[in-house]
Design a binder for these strands. Sequence first.
DNA 1: TGAAATGTTGGGGCG
DNA 2: ACGCCCCAACATTTC
Length: 491
Amino acid sequence: MTTKKTIIVWFRRDLRLTDNPALHWATQQKRPVLCVYINDTQATDDNKPGGASRWWLHHSLLALDSQLSNCGNKLHLISGSPDESMYKLVEATGADTVVWNRRYEPSAIALDSAIKKHLIDIGHTVTSFPGNYCHEPWQVQREGKHPYKVFTAYWRASLKHATLAVAGADTDTATDGPEKILCYRGKGCSGVNIESLGLLPTLPWADQFADTWQPGEAGAAIRLQQLLDGAISHYSEGRDLPAVEGTSRLSPHLAFGEISPRQITAAIADRVVSGELKDDDNTETYRKEIGWRDFACHLLYHFPHTTENPLDVRFKKFPWKKNKKALQRWQQGNTGIPLVDAGMRQLWQTGWMHNRVRMVVGSLLIKNMGIHWLEGARWFWDTLLDADLASNTMGWQWVAGSGADAAPYFRVFNPVRQGERFDPDGDYIRQWVPEIAKLGKKTIHAPWTASDTELANAGIVLGKTYPKPIVDLAQSRKDALERFGTIKSHA
DNA sequence: TGAAATGTTGGGGCG
DNA sequence: ACGCCCCAACATTTC
């Protein structure tokens, strides 16, 4: 018996055709395929994209639709609650099979499980495939023991597992995208227009994003080529220099599943085999970054409460400070501390911030300003194009010292020192904080230490054309050590 | 994926 | 030539 009933491929954070397990399986069945994206109007905080992510999503959906068109298919857009929308769609189209690639956010797991159960209960077939990681979050585990909380232990263990096999293939290589996807053309398939999803911001905030980014699978492929042709061969050093294109810039593409980690590692392996790329400390360091991304997923899966609560319970009653005005100055990049302001402005203007600078701005907010890490996490959630619940949670708890494999409480970044070390000529600061661009490479990291004549020559009036520092770095560091030091006794 | 304080060493100026 | 001091450069410890 052969059935020719329609298969629904539910796209979520896997907006690509290449190496897409659910789509790959669906196209192999020689049955009509209905590709759908549901814009979740009921999404809870966990699952609700921030402003920058919505901009990206808009363009990525357009790109996916155009890719599908090349294969004789299209993307069917729905606005509503995912469960009700899916049930209606199944009924209206007579589809009997629904497939998707997994998500691992707590609320997404709950939602997907409920939908899967209901559809199976009413007699449909539902298959979920691995999501956009090298390993499933439960896969790398000590037998019968607790989940990993230390990266190096997790990393070593993960190397013993092959990366995920693709459905229908018994290797861990990436699958090619389909050339043709049989299109469902029956009833019950009246999707909405993308404009009606209202994903683009009403203010002109995001207008410059497109100068830096090309959402979609093709844009991801270009970034990957650029990484392989450039940054990866000096990654260990280059990734720490914010003025240099030393990182992959793949994070938003990964977050939306426009490229899979497997495609990236496979492409690196190909170049190593062909001799175009040396497998050295640089490639190793980059692969570890992909490992950190997997580790974040592992942590969120096993410790879902950490999105709001510290993993380290000693931080439960930590006396965070509330200061709305100071928080706003941080958000707007007006702290008077150049490296921090440069980072926060880069974030606002491009939807992305260099990773080293993320640590520095986080450290200032949490340690020197004493503000709760959640305030930083929420701002990043709204303004980062690569916003990802697992990575965001892990990153902020790492800086706060309350997370897994976290920075010890006494590790307080000095943004001046960090600037001198990683932006020695001040180029990054000059790009994003132009009002102090004329300062020399010594004082540009700490304008308050410049002489009156140097400030005058640079056209700077501290407190007027550029703020005085929001905190005394030395004093606030001392205070932080004292405050954070006390948690040691709260066992 | 720290920074600052403190300790050690060694070269050079100088009486 | 010698001892003394200064201080940069590096190493170690502490938070």
